[in-house]
Structures are given as structure tokens and as C-alpha cells.
Simulated assay, not measured.
Amino acid sequence: MSAASARRRPVEHETVDVDDDDAEPWPRGVSRDPKMKISEVVDRLKTEFPALSLSKVRYLEGEGLIAPYRVGNGYRRYSEADMERLRYTLTAQRDEYLPLSVIRQRLAELDASPQAPPPQPSPIARVVAADGRTVTGATLDAASLARHAGASVAQLEELISIGVVAPDTRGRFDARALGTVTLALRAHRLGIPLRNLRPVRTAAEREADVIDAAVQHKRQRSSTAAEDAATEIAAVLAELHSALLHQAISALE
């Protein structure tokens, strides 16, 4: 039984309950209340999968790996169970290099087995957790951020100085900073000096201004509609940026 066929479409804010646990798709015992927007799902998984994007989540949906709900206005809403299926898929791709067809089959087997094991805790959550708290909502000091990202103190200081990451008023960093620093170091290992990432940050801020201007009229009517529209525009601009970048690189050859 697929995830999509085992679910009914709820109205917004409705909690979905399944009486027969055996009929419930994997993972069982995990909330199926569709409360999260796609941007929230990406933010929560970015620490584990720094390259994750909105378009990648949509692609995996199109391939049948996840099946988010569509609520009144047509926007996707995700549950904790959806996020665990997404984490399972991304982990299998990253760690086992499995094609989606094999991952899809594995998920189908988990759906069909009443004895299927629960989802495993995130490795990064185990590493970053403090006092038994998961990484979600936790913050890191500079030393912890550098250690978990594999950065030197000097490298982290340089990234702070050019605004790629920024501490809060207490000098601490949110979980998203770990993914950002990890990506910056990957770029550095590929030959880009960290100081050259300043224009990348500036370009992102300019794109954010473009998006903000585009959704201003929606923000006056509904903050939720504005946020959803901003998420959609950001995904389109990210794909456009990628296409233009590849076009520019081809022109150099």
C-alpha cells in the first residue's frame, strides 16, 4: 500500500487519526497532523542534508517517495511522518547511493510490515544534542559550531566577518548555521577562498529583497499567503540562478 493511497485529504488544521495501525503507512506512531510548510521541513533537515532544496523535496514528491497533504488553498502541508519518510529517502541516497526505485520499494516493504522498526534518530541530532535536547530549536556556541562543521576558529571568524553566518545577541548560532558553514567549507575545499563567498551572500540578500517586494501586497492580506508565495518564488529563483550559472560557466569554455 502506498503512502498516498493510505491517506485521506484532511481539511486544514485537522488532525489525521488512523484507527488500524496495521493499515497506516510507515512510520507508525508518528504524528500525521499536517502542520508544516515545505520551507519548515527543509529548514529542519538542512543540518543533516545541507544541499537540500525546495525543488528537491518537490521532485521526491513527484517520484512518489512522499505524499504531503494539499489543504484548502492548494498549498502543501507536511507532517512529522512525512518528514521521517523524507529523511529515510535522503539518508539512503547519501549513505547507500541507492536509486529511487530501490528506496521506493523499501518504503513499500516498510508500509506493508506491521513489525517495521521506527525511524532512527538523526545522527547529527545525536552529535549536536545537549542535555538530551534534539538539535531542533537548539543553539550552538562558536566553538561547538566550528567543531561539528569541521572548521577552524579562523575559518569561522572569517565567515562571520563577511556575513555568511551571524551569531545572535548571546553569541550563539541556530542549527541552520551548521549547514551553512558545512557548505561554505565544501566550496573552500573545491578551491574558493572563503572571502570570495561575500558576493554569494550579497546576491542572496538581493534576491530576498526582490521576493519581499513581490509578496508585499499579499502580506497586507495574509501573512501565511505571503510566506507561501515567498517560498514558491524562492524555489523558482534558485532554479533560475542554477540555470544562469551553468550558462555562464559554459560561456567560459
Rank of each mutant, 00 (worst) to 15 (best):
A3V: 04
A4M: 08
S5C: 00
R7N: 11
P10Q: 14
V11R: 04
E14C: 02
T15P: 11
D19N: 12
D20F: 01
D21K: 10
D22K: 02
P25K: 03
R28K: 08
R28G: 10
G29A: 03
V30T: 14
R32Y: 09
R32F: 02
R32E: 10
K35C: 05
E40Y: 05
T47S: 14
F49Y: 13
L54F: 03
L54Y: 01
S55K: 14
R58M: 05
Y59M: 04
Y59C: 06
E63Y: 02
I66Q: 03
A67R: 07
P68L: 00
P68A: 07
Y69T: 06
Y69H: 06
Y69W: 10
R70P: 12
V71C: 14
G72K: 09
Y75W: 06
Y75L: 08
Y78T: 01
S79Y: 05
S79E: 05
E80H: 06
A81W: 02
D82S: 12
D82P: 13
E84W: 03
R85F: 09
L86Y: 04
R87A: 15
R87I: 06
Y88A: 08
Y88G: 11
T89R: 07
A92W: 08
R94H: 05
P99G: 09
L100S: 04
S101H: 07
R106Q: 08
R106D: 08
L107C: 05
A108S: 11
L110G: 07
L110R: 02
D111T: 01
D111G: 00
P114I: 11
P114H: 01
A116M: 05
Q120E: 13
P121C: 11
S122G: 15
P123G: 10
V127F: 00
V127I: 10
V128K: 05
V128C: 03
T134I: 09
T136I: 09
T139R: 15
T139L: 03
D141E: 13
S144L: 04
A146T: 08
A146Q: 04
H148Y: 14
V153C: 00
A154V: 08
A154L: 03
Q155F: 10
Q155M: 10
L156H: 11
E158N: 12
L159A: 14
I160N: 15
I160W: 02
S161H: 13
I162E: 01
G163T: 13
A166V: 10
A166S: 14
A166F: 05
T169S: 13
G171T: 07
D174R: 01
D174Y: 00
R176T: 11
L178M: 10
T180E: 09
T180I: 13
T182E: 13
T182S: 13
H188C: 15
L190C: 12
R195T: 15
N196L: 11
R198H: 12
P199N: 13
V200F: 10
E205R: 15
E205H: 09
E207Y: 02
A208Y: 06
V210M: 13
D212S: 12
A213S: 11
A214S: 10
R219S: 04
Q220N: 08
S223R: 08
S223C: 01
A226G: 11
I233N: 05
A234F: 03
A234R: 09
A235N: 03
L237R: 00
L240K: 13
L240I: 15
S242E: 15
A243R: 09
L244F: 08
A248R: 10
L252C: 01
E253Q: 11
